[in-house]
């Protein structure tokens, strides 16, 4: 498989995932998008292993490795901090026992309380992608990715 074919396939899978996410929201089937995402990623990994014209050398591997490690170093702190905030909300009552339900007015039963946490996680994950790109650009520049000479 050519590299461009792989990119095309990845784009198509991405579009399918977006469509399935929409269907999942409409049908309230969270497992649909969860399963579809895992399958999509597996397909991409398998396809990536079949690329014939990819040239990964040790320098690009080092850039990827360093950028990934630095991203993880920062991301886990952010993620842990946000999760601690979530824990505080969970244990904010004595002995973790939730208070009795308020009589009236109560929040509507369909309010997506747990969905807010998913939204926050998505924001963090998007932030992680940008962080990774930033580190990747930094290390690529450090190891001469865009250097040129007389040749």
């Amino acid at each position: 498989m050519k590299l461009n074919t792989f990119y095309l396939l990845a784009g198509i899978i991405g579009l399918i995932e977006v469509g399935l996410f929409w269907v999942s929201v409409l049908t309230r089937e969270s497992m649909l998008i969860t399963g579809a995402f895992v399958v999509g990623i597996l397909v991409i990994y398998v396809a990536r292993g079949r690329i014939s014209d990819r040239r990964d050398d040790e320098r690009s591997a080092l850039i990827t490795q360093k950028a990934g490690a630095r991203t993880l170093e920062i991301f886990w702190i952010l993620f842990f901090a946000v999760s601690l905030g979530g824990l505080v909300m969970g244990f904010a009552t004595p002995l973790g026992i939730p208070p009795p339900p308020r009589p009236f007015p109560r929040s509507p039963p369909d309010e997506p309380h747990i969905g807010y946490f998913g939204l926050l996680q998505m924001v963090l994950l998007c932030g992680m992608v940008f962080l990774y790109i930033g580190f990747r650009l930094y290390y690529a520049r450090k190891y001469g990715e865009w250097d040129d000479d007389e040749e």
């Binding site: 050398d57 040790e58 320098r59 690009s60 080092l62 250097d147 000479d149």
Partner: peptide, 24 residues
């Protein structure tokens, strides 16, 4: 050339260039 050497070594031309310049 850098390109020929890179192909022989199985790396990218930028890698040979980075080694020559002492960046890698």
């Amino acid at each position: 050339t850098q390109e020929t050497l890179a192909q022989e070594m199985g790396v990218a031309r930028q890698t040979i260039l980075a080694i020559e310049k002492g960046k890698y």
